[in-house]
């Protein structure tokens, strides 16, 4: 037992070092910097809680938080929803599973920036794919990235990009369900929609919970789609882009760090909340 402890320590040590260097140290440094008014990279002045005061009266940060929550809603409903529907469908087909698995998983492999650029060409008002199609049919062009629709338009590629990831998680979870459950269901005469709702979904509930938490925390990291498609304009600013603007473009690292701390606290609160809401007995089989 004593020896085991040593090995536990030994094997955890490298990971702990890396985590400390690349996660804990920058995080602590962000907390430290959030108490300073910085001027570029070279000068900083201690200002106490000034940045936090500014944060609580910052309308733009409030708007960014709401926009992030809106995207989160789309992600949880559509990303997780589509992934589940696709997984149920693919799970129940006899052949071609591997083909669909590859097809649905594929978007994950493409970088977010590349997908965003593709959607720039799809949504562009002047010569975008959608508007070209509309004008070919003699219809008026639509401003896809308008003030009211920009966030929804950006949610489309955001949702599409990661559907495949959750789809694979669900599919794997479903393949772990022992076949005797289904055989029993078959004898009882339960099939189709009922089987999915009363059998499959309850049995993978713990995976659904994990996926929802992943989706919620993942939304806090959305950046590339917003940045490339709309630069945070027209009501699309989210926490990630706002922090980047403050820190990297304004070179105000103090306030940027304050927002970073806010994002972390916000993320932790959200995942704790989701955990509470989804608390349910674990199924074991």
């Amino acid at each position: 037992m004593k020896g085991d402890k040593k090995y536990i320590f030994l094997f955890l040590f490298p990971a702990a070092v890396l985590m400390s260097i690349f996660i804990y140290y920058p995080f602590l440094k962000s907390i430290y910097l959030s108490f300073f008014r910085t001027k570029g990279f070279f000068e900083k002045k201690f200002v106490g809680f000034e940045n936090y005061k500014r944060m609580f009266s910052d309308d733009l940060l409030g708007a960014a938080t709401l926009n992030t929550l809106e995207i989160m809603l789309y992600v949880v409903i559509f990303q997780v929803g589509f992934a589940l529907v696709l997984a149920v469908m693919v799970d129940s087909i006899k052949w071609g599973k591997a083909f669909y698995r590859t097809v649905f998983f594929f978007p994950i492999v493409i970088s977010g920036a590349a997908i965003s650029l593709m959607f720039v060409l799809i949504y562009n008002y002047q010569f975008g794919l959608l508007n070209s199609a509309l004008s070919n049919f003699g219809m008026d062009k639509v401003l896809w990235l308008s003030e009211t629709s920009a966030l929804k338009a950006i949610a489309v590629p955001t949702v599409w990009h990661y559907v495949g990831f959750y789809f694979i998680l669900f599919l794997t979870a479903m393949s772990k369900i022992p076949s005797d459950f289904y055989e029993a269901a078959k004898i009882e005469g339960i099939s189709g929609f009922k089987k999915t709702v009363y059998l499959t979904i309850p049995l993978i509930m713990s995976d659904i919970k994990v996926v929802i938490i992943l989706a919620i925390t993942g939304t806090l990291k959305v950046f590339d789609f917003i940045w490339i498609l709309a630069r945070g304009q027209n009501g699309t600013e989210v926490l990630g882009t706002y922090m980047y603007k403050k820190a990297m473009i304004d070179l105000n690292f103090g306030y940027g760090s304050t927002i970073a701390v806010y994002i972390v606290v916000f993320g932790v609160l959200l995942s704790v909340l989701t955990n509470r809401l989804l608390k349910k007995e674990e199924v074991t089989y």
Binding site: Y125, Q126, L145, A150, R231, N234
Partner: peptide, 9 residues
């Protein structure tokens, strides 16, 4: 200005 001036770079 262009209709999409808000979102273009």
């Amino acid at each position: 200005f262009p209709k999409d001036a808000a979102t273009i770079d």
